[in-house]
């Protein structure tokens, strides 16, 4: 039995130790906001927070995630940066097909937790691991700046 703490809740799952955390989150626990894109840590669709840091859940064997606090898109609004990013994403109409956007939001909110006022270049660098085939990058940049401004104001619109 593997025990995981996801979004503040304890989950026990009967899976082999080497199964990627992604598949346990998505298919075993059915938190489907976290997406599968490449399975090799190349696209960022599966990004979750592990102890507050953005990590590729397809690259973490589930056993290694035990004892850590995992946050997924479903609960990212409980963090100040996550709430600001989600709000900015809606305000700027960022998503198109939307498939990569959970990963984009998880990475962007981790960026703003670490660096509340990033430059364009810092945004580009931090988010360069997240692919978007629809090409929403220009609105992503804009939304990250917007979220940054909102956080500065204390999260109030």
């Amino acid at each position: 039995m593997i025990t995981l703490e996801i979004n503040g809740k304890q989950h026990s799952v009967d899976v082999p130790a080497d199964v990627p955390l992604l598949w346990v989150i998505r298919e075993h626990l059915r938190l489907t906001g976290t997406k599968f894109g490449c399975g090799k840590g190349l696209c960022g669709s599966c990004t979750v927070h592990v102890d507050g840091k953005a990590e590729r859940s397809c690259q973490i064997p589930v056993a290694e995630a035990q004892g850590k606090k995992i946050t997924t898109i479903e609960a990212v609004a409980s963090t100040p940066s996550g709430a600001a990013v989600q709000k900015a994403w809606v305000a700027e109409d960022v998503p198109q097909c939307g498939y990569c956007q959970s990963g984009q939001i998880m990475t962007a909110s981790a960026l703003l937790s670490a660096n509340p006022k990033p430059t364009d270049a810092q945004i580009d660098e931090y988010l360069s691991g997240n692919l978007c085939r629809c090409g929403t990058y220009q609105r992503i940049r804009k939304a990250v700046h917007k979220a940054s401004r909102e956080m500065k104001k204390g999260g109030k619109p």
């Binding site: 298919e27 938190l31 489907t32 997924t72 898109i73 994403w89 809606v90 960022v94 939307g98 959970s102």
Partner: peptide, 27 residues
């Protein structure tokens, strides 16, 4: 006009094909 699908797509709630579950299904 703002898109109707954006709120769900910003909260991980939009259901894509890969997010389907059916009772008793196999992979």
């Amino acid at each position: 006009v703002e898109r109707l699908d954006v709120p769900d797509k910003s909260r991980g709630k939009a259901m894509f094909g890969i997010d389907t579950f059916v009772e008793g299904m196999q992979y």
